[in-house]
Each structure stands twice: as structure tokens, then as C-alpha cells.
């Protein structure tokens, strides 16, 4: 799907507008999207660390994928699918700690390291993410 150049540019989420009035079917099948996102190995430069408040997350559209990047306390970064597989909740709006994020809609809990749910929901995808020397967040997808 997004087999582009090795360093792609990502779109900050608000440039695309939120989903309410999007008629496009793109990404509607959140559950099936996950396997498709693996294995291309491209590195995407998402934006600067300061765009994400400490302890919160922001969402980036990377090609057809939507990735929530969490900036944990201590400045650890975590990247996971932006959409909860249970009922489509926005995980980036969830509360997180060093280990998990809690979906804001129905409180399903997901490990930020493995994607496994401790509350019985299907797993979410997790992606390698790091902070480049220039302060840019780099995601491998």
C-alpha cells in the first residue's frame, strides 16, 4: 500500500479533517488494516517532538494508515494504531501510562509495547518509532 520512498512525509492529522463528514471509504476496515501495514520497512518523518504534549498522543496519517504516537513521561515514544478495534474509538484521546493506553470510548486497555488487550479486545498494531537527533519523530512502517 504505502511502499514509497524510504523517507516519506507524513500528514499531521488536522490537515485532513476528522472523519465525521468524510464520505471516503478509506480505512473503514480498521481491523483488517493492521496486517497490511507490516513489512514495508519505510521510515516516515512525522514531525517534531514538541508537537506532542508530555503524556499525551497525537495522530499522524501515514499514507493510508493512521498512527497514534504517544510521548510518555520520560520522553519515551510509542506508536500504535490510532483506532480502537472494538468500536473505532480514537486511542490518541485515551489516557496512558508507561505501559498501557485506555480507549476513551469504552475503556478497553491495550499494551503500548505489544498491542495486546488486557480487557478482551482484539490486539492493535505497534510500530517502531524513535526520536532523531534533530528532534524529529521517525516512524518505521
Amino acid at each position: 500500500m504505502s511502499a514509497q520512498s524510504s523517507v516519506a512525509t507524513a500528514t499531521p492529522a488536522d490537515a485532513s479533517g476528522s472523519g465525521r463528514d468524510k464520505g471516503s471509504p478509506v480505512g473503514t476496515e480498521a481491523k483488517s488494516a493492521r496486517p497490511a501495514l507490516t513489512g514495508t520497512g519505510a521510515v516516515h518523518r512525522l514531525g517534531l517532538l514538541r508537537e506532542i504534549p508530555v503524556g499525551e498522543a497525537r495522530v499522524y496519517a501515514v499514507g493510508d494508515a493512521q498512527i497514534a504516537v504517544f510521548r510518555l513521561r520520560g520522553d519515551t515514544l510509542r506508536a500504535v494504531d490510532a483506532v480502537c478495534p472494538h468500536a473505532g474509538g480514537p486511542l490518541a484521546d485515551g489516557q496512558a501510562d508507561a505501559g498501557v493506553v485506555i480507549c476513551p470510548l469504552h475503556a478497553h486497555v491495550f499494551s503500548l509495547a505489544t498491542g495486546e488487550s488486557t480487557s478482551g479486545a482484539p490486539p492493535i498494531g505497534c510500530y517502531p518509532v524513535r526520536l532523531a537527533v534533530d528532534g524529529t519523530i521517525e516512524l518505521t512502517l
Partner: peptide, 15 residues
């Protein structure tokens, strides 16, 4: 905060 009102569901058409 930075991006306080940025959407967290950029491209998804939800239920």
C-alpha cells in the same frame, strides 16, 4: 497544549 484540538481520527469513517 500543542495540538489541543487536533483530531485524533484523521481519515477514518466511523460508524
Amino acid at each position: 497544549t500543542a495540538g489541543q484540538f487536533r483530531t485524533s481520527l484523521p481519515l477514518i469513517t466511523l460508524p
